[in-house]
Design a protein around this nucleic acid. Structure first.
Lengths: 228, 228
DNA sequence: TTCAAAACATGACAATTGTCAGTTCATCCT
DNA sequence: AGGATGAACTGACAATTGTCATGTTTTGAA
């Protein structure tokens, strides 16, 4: 089985601040899981006894609102460590993680993480930096959600998808989401998202081939997103 | 001048994980500031060379949206440490901090914080725990902002204010916010907030005496907030 | 391949929310 | 006290968004 010491993914997350010995321990206790699209990694309210390091594929982190709708709070890809927050605060998970794609994740039991946190300041600070970054992103999302129109948020979502997941050889967004997922990222009704996507197509901002979407007029989309 | 070693506020935040010597260093380098209502502690985009420990009063942390409106992301009170996130990620502040009240804050130069983070795992982990908590709260705000109606959000805001800042001897919310600030917490137009507040008064959910607001029917308000 | 289920799409309408305009009220300064 | 300033409030209307109903296309399993 592959070893964390040789895993490139590690360079993208806080595990890179671990010493050789610490990493060895992680590697000895970790297990690897393959998940198919739609499967859940963990659910809101579940007690996690470890974290999940994403080696491939994309996961959506979502939370059920009291009105019964799902809100996607974040999309996590290669290098992301899921469940870290819950393990650190010793609370149940506040989000659900679901595979949007076929995924490969490594489960790392929490002791290896917690012990390293308590003994290796480099690692603790590295985790802290990542969490500080996540917090900033979350603050930005709050502002966007509360101050922008649905149309602006959809435009932003496409830009975000292109920036973070890239495009395929034909220029289509590498990450394909269902209209429902897009609606749940943006925080709107599925019908509203569909209508806006249709409008964007008519305006020549995007084009679509089946479920795949490509940004045609990046400038126009960006202008729309900031309200021009 | 008062010393951090004797400061009770410390018990509410991550400074409690500092050793005697570390605390002494903080105390020797800190300065205390008195701020009047409306004054700013720091602004979005500013480079911070330290953090601010709130000893008294309340601060609003807000961010300007591209459409020109302010969104209040968080209200911080006694014990809160402001600017921590920016110092840790070595980025400019992503939020502005303004006194909602008369305030007393201590400024702690960043070296004392950063050096302790790098050498004392207990402190690093304690800061991490606080940040994990903030992140969870931010996720909840994202869900509320995107999935709840303005009316529900206003109801939640009052409950939040009562839970976090308490009431005075007559039962009125201890923290008095302008209608504009309430609107900016909730992410809506000032007029909409005012209208909803009037409606809540008519429904007997709250009462008002001048700017002061009191919750009359906590159950009714809570039901409304979750959509019953 | 064929059929059922799910996803996508659109119309019609209702509800929510924002905007603009104007009035009243409170506060603060000289 | 008087007046100026800003906050609080209200009405009317427009724009946005959600909901329900219904049809079409795509997808996936038998």
């Amino acid at each position: 089985m592959s070893r964390c010491e040789n895993c490139i993914i590690r360079q993208f997350n806080s595990l890179r601040a671990m010493s050789k010995e610490e990493l060895k321990r992680v590697s000895d206790t970790k297990t690897t899981k393959i998940l198919k699209k739609g499967e859940t990694i963990f659910e809101e309210g579940e007690k996690l006894n470890g974290v999940f390091c994403v080696r491939g594929g994309v996961s959506k982190l979502s939370k059920l609102s009291s009105n019964g709708k799902d809100q996607i709070v974040k999309l996590a890809t290669k290098g992301a460590v899921l469940g870290q927050r819950s393990v650190i605060s010793e609370e149940v998970a506040n989000l659900s993680a679901t595979a949007v794609n076929d995924m490969e994740v490594c489960f790392i039991p929490k002791d290896a993480i917690v012990d390293t946190l308590n003994s290796n300041p480099n690692f603790a600070v590295e985790v802290l930096r990542h969490m500080a970054h996540d917090l900033k992103e979350a603050d930005d999302v709050i502002v966007n959600m509360s101050q922008k129109t649905v149309k602006q948020r959809v435009a932003e979502a496409f830009i975000y998808l292109e920036d973070n997941f890239g495009v395929d050889d034909k220029g289509y967004l590498a990450l394909t989401l269902s209209r429902e997922d897009i609606a749940n990222v943006v925080g709107t009704a599925t019908e509203s998202a569909i209508r806006i996507i249709s409008e964007f197509k008519k305006l020549g901002l995007i084009k679509a081939s089946g479920k795949k979407i490509a940004i045609v007029d990046a400038k126009g989309l960006a202008d729309l997103a900031v309200g021009i």
